[in-house]
Design a binder for these strands. Sequence first.
RNA 1: GCCCUCGUAGCUCAGUGGAUAGAGCACCGCCCUCCGGAGGCGGGUGUCGCAGGUUCGAAUCCUGCCGAGGGCGCCA
Length: 553
Amino acid sequence: MTPAALAELVHSIATAVLAERGLAPAVLPETVTIERPRNPEHGDYATNLALQVGKKVGMAPRELATALAERLADADGVEAAEVAGPGFLNLRLAADAQAEVVRQVLTAGDTYGTGHALDGVSINLEFVSANPTGPIHLGGTRWAAVGDALGRILAAQGAKVTREYYFNDAGAQIDRFVSSLVAAAKGEPAPEDGYAGGYVSDIAAEVLRAEPDALSLPEAERDDVFRRAGVQLMFDEIKRSLHDFGTDFDVFFHEDSLHLSGAVESALEHLKLSDSVYYAEGAWWIRSTDFGDDKDRVVIKSDGAPAYIAADIAYLKDKRERGFDLCLFMLGADHHGYIGRLKAAAASLGDNPDVAEVLIGQMVNLVSEGKPVRMSKRAGTVITMEDLVEAVGVDAARYELTRYSVDSPVDIDLDLLRKHTNENPVFYVQYAHARLASLQRNAAELGLVTPGPDEIDLGLLDHPREGDLIRTIGEFGKVIARAAELREPHRIARYLEELASAYHKFYDAARVLPQGDEQPDALTFARLALCEAARQVIANGLSLLGVSAPERM
RNA sequence: GCCCUCGUAGCUCAGUGGAUAGAGCACCGCCCUCCGGAGGCGGGUGUCGCAGGUUCGAAUCCUGCCGAGGGCGCCA
């Protein structure tokens, strides 16, 4: 019996108990909370239902709990039900009922744990979107890891997810990038507000290789060559880094295209007819203060040119016209001011502001010898996605960046990177998987085959460590659902660590394969099935994070 | 000044109303005739930033304060 099934059982029994006393079952929560008590004496599962509703219906919580316990104790699969403390209901399940999840995992395979909360919902997930004026830095790398994982998690709940990267290739920063390329090509130092990294001269050299005469062209044409070729090379490099990092986008959207197609202009014309904007002091303003912004923002400047936010509005409109129900934006903490603006943008299009949901994540900091290091191109302390991958590998990098809540800033320690450290919990999880894969190989050598879902005597899995492992496996679906609902991929990583721990403890206490002259028995096969289920769930979880599940390490 | 996020063990962090607040790292012991020791077991540390409030019950929700980071352009 899974926790979800148990919750339903408790719910139906509670409904009956209340009805018998002429009380309205409407006071019951839709889904009964079933939790795993820390203290093993409190049973396999516990519910606080009687505490929650007792008072509402005028019953003492303990009295209600007692009534529930009597019925539950008689239910199939429930071994014991007792009332504790102020009205907790502690439940102990029969081994075979509890181990039912093992059968479910083996049947569902790599779909085990998926849900339907977002069935049919079309989601646009925009993340990274770093300016194409340089390689992806640590900040962008964090979003690449977290955003990609979130996309997988949302998809596991049934959503149709489109990953999108927005290239801001229309503004002044591109002009500065181009003039930096030209300067580098001429062998001159970077302009005052330009870009000076080594990649600039690399790209400049490549442009020259393709267009050897570029520098002798008239200024406008020359800039045009560097813009076209240079920006393209930068795009390519960014895309390649992301791909090597295991993050692939469905759409790379160019801001430029919004201006060229007239989308910005038409969005603005449309906007002027709405109540969301007004004309003042020679400019057009959007009422972003309605959505928590500090002040209203200019959308059309007094010189008639669209402000940056105008493109954002046109972009959101474009997304909605492409049929997305929900547009998610993952932004760094330095962009939290965008929340109000994007909500206002949605409202100005006549949409519910909730269709634009902004996820704010804290920054990634560099630390060396315990002290913060400012990223500086000139000082050579800019760490790129490629640097990080080179230092620790894709799996460790992705895992490390995903296992923390995005609400907390991440410090990347330069010294640890240099040490190529193995002190990353990803290895703990991956090791568990490799160990399980090894077990399957050993079993195969002995001619033992993991039994099919219906040939397992699940009642034999009654060791406490087996119970812990089984219950942990049973949590997976809830963990994914919660991670999707709260947009918090780190929950998957934390869960995997818990699962790996439960497995290691089980494996230490319980022998699986026969030794010496022993013959395999029903317990051998039951444990083999449990191991395969554990392996499957670890693999499924790692896959949600875009981290590999190695057969060997 | 206003807005956002954070403040939990020596360090890095989990824990968005439940029972005695957890894990990893670090430190000290112990455990391989045996399926991978990248493992397991034991040892201890907490004014959950502070002060109020809400309630059967608060690290969690509300208010104020303190501290850290970030943001507040007709830049993009």
